[in-house]
Amino acid sequence: MLRISRQSWVSIGLLLLSVSLMAAGQLCMRRGMLAFGPIESPQAFFNLVWSGIVAPMSIGFVWLGMIVYSIAIMVWLQVLSRMDLSIAFPMMSLSYVLVYLGAALWPALDEAITVGRLAGTGLIMCGVALVAGSRRS
C-alpha cells in the first residue's frame, strides 16, 4: 500500500481545495454571464466592465467568481511549492470534472448530463488516480 505522510496529506488537501475553488469560480462566472447575456460586440464588453464598476451587484456572480478564482490561484501556488509539477498539473484536470458536475447540479445552470460527458469524466478520474498513485521522485 501507499504510505502517505502528513505533509503529503496537506499538499493533497491544498490541491483539492485549489481545484474546487477553480471550479466554483468558473461556475459563478458562468452564472453571472448567463444573467448578463452573451457578449456579441465590443460595446457589450464595455457595458459589462462599466456595470461592474458603477453597479457591482448587477454582475455580483461575475465578481464573486473572479474573487474565488483569485483565491484558487494563490492556493495553487502553494501546491506548486510542495508537489512535483508532473503530478500537480495533470491533477488540475479534476476541475473539468467538477465544472461538468456542478453545471449539471446547479439548477440555475441546468446543463445536461450525457453518457458521453460521464464517460469523459470517468476517464479523467482514472487518469488522475493513476497520476496520484504513481511513484514520487
Partner: peptide
C-alpha cells in the same frame, strides 16, 4: 504509470 494517467486525462478531456 504517470504517463498512462496523463494519456487517460487527455483522452477524457477529448471525450468530454
Amino acid at each position: 504509470r504517470r504517463w498512462c494517467g496523463v494519456a487517460l486525462i487527455v483522452l477524457g478531456v477529448g471525450v468530454l
